[in-house]
Amino acid sequence: MNTVLPATLELHGVRLEPLGAHHADGLRAAAADGELWQLRVTSVPAPDEVDAYIYKAIGQRPTRLAFAVIDVASGALMGTTSYHDIVADIGRLEIGYTWYAKRWQRTHVNTTCKLLLMTHAFETLGAALVGLRTDNFNHASQAAIERLGAKKDGVLRHHAQRRDGTVRDTVMYSIAAGEWAEVKAHLRYKLAQHGMA
């Protein structure tokens, strides 16, 4: 797999650009829309944690590349997503650390982001497999991942600590390079249903 370098990706009015310190105010506003840090099963930063969240993400390169998700028309920051657990030697990476302001949830934004990230991963980087993971109690996220066409690999029990100190089980999913053409067609179909040609 090619080296994962910072890149800007754009489609259907959504732009993914490398997350930086200049995105802090926009990220705070996005998190405040729905008070997302209050959700037990996500890792959304509270307003006073945003700067540390960004610096941690930047510091995790080259095994993580975080993106700001921008609405091209307004310039508003809608949320964030990342490539993470990048293992170039075996052509594996994951997509995660994904969250959106409440008003952008259940729109075309997540599907567009996944299409952008997976197209780049499989067709530019040459990934053999793209993984996704979520909390065992985050049923909405599991359903969203399954709607993408990812296959459930299994559950890692007692895997990671939540913000409240409890330990979660992690549900793992993946899409292999040989499955990408069908998943891509499915994502394009879903976007067409949202009026995105």
Results as ranks from 00 to 15, higher is better:
T111R: 02
V167A: 11
I58D: 00
T111G: 09
K184M: 13
A143Q: 14
G91L: 05
V72D: 08
L187N: 10
T112Y: 05
V183E: 05
E17L: 02
I54V: 03
A121R: 04
P18D: 09
D89A: 12
G26F: 00
D25E: 00
A185N: 15
R133A: 15
R40T: 08
Y97H: 11
P18H: 04
R157V: 14
Y53T: 04
T3N: 14
V87G: 05
E49H: 02
G75E: 13
A127C: 15
D85C: 12
R15A: 01
H22G: 13
D89N: 08
A57E: 01
Y55R: 06
L187E: 08
Y83S: 12
A57C: 02
R162K: 09
L129V: 15
G165I: 05
G59T: 01
V183D: 06
G178R: 06
T81R: 07
Y189K: 15
S74M: 09
R133W: 09
I145V: 09
G154V: 13
G26K: 02
L132F: 13
L36G: 04
T80Q: 10
D25P: 01
I95Q: 05
R15M: 03
D25I: 02
K102D: 10
Y100K: 10
H120M: 12
G131R: 12
I145N: 03
E17H: 01
Y173V: 14
L5P: 01
I58P: 03
L132W: 10
A30F: 00
D135N: 15
R106I: 06
R168I: 08
A66R: 02
A181P: 04
H120F: 07
V155R: 07
D85V: 14
E146Y: 06
Y189G: 15
E146D: 14
G96V: 10
E35A: 09
L129W: 05
Y100W: 02
L77S: 12
G126W: 10
G149T: 06
A177T: 07
A7L: 04
G59W: 00
G34A: 07
R40A: 10
I70C: 02
I145H: 09
S43I: 08
G178W: 03
D153S: 15
A121L: 07
T63F: 04
L9K: 00
R64F: 00
L115Q: 09
T107S: 10
T107F: 02
L5A: 14
T42L: 00
L19K: 01
H23W: 07
K151F: 14
T42F: 03
L191C: 07
L148A: 13
D25V: 11
I175A: 09
A143S: 13
A197W: 05
R162D: 11
Q142C: 15
I58T: 01
D153T: 15
G195Y: 06
I145E: 13
A73I: 02
E49I: 01
A150F: 01
L125R: 06
G59A: 05
I86G: 02
H12E: 11
L65T: 06
E182P: 06
H158R: 15
D71Q: 01
R147F: 13
R162V: 01
T107N: 12
E49Q: 01
D51Y: 00
D169N: 06
Q105K: 12
L77I: 04
A181D: 07
Q105E: 13
F122W: 07
L65F: 00
Q105T: 10
A24P: 08
L129D: 14
G20H: 03
T134W: 04
I70R: 07
R92T: 11
A177H: 05
L5S: 12
G13F: 02
Y173D: 08
P45L: 03
E146V: 14
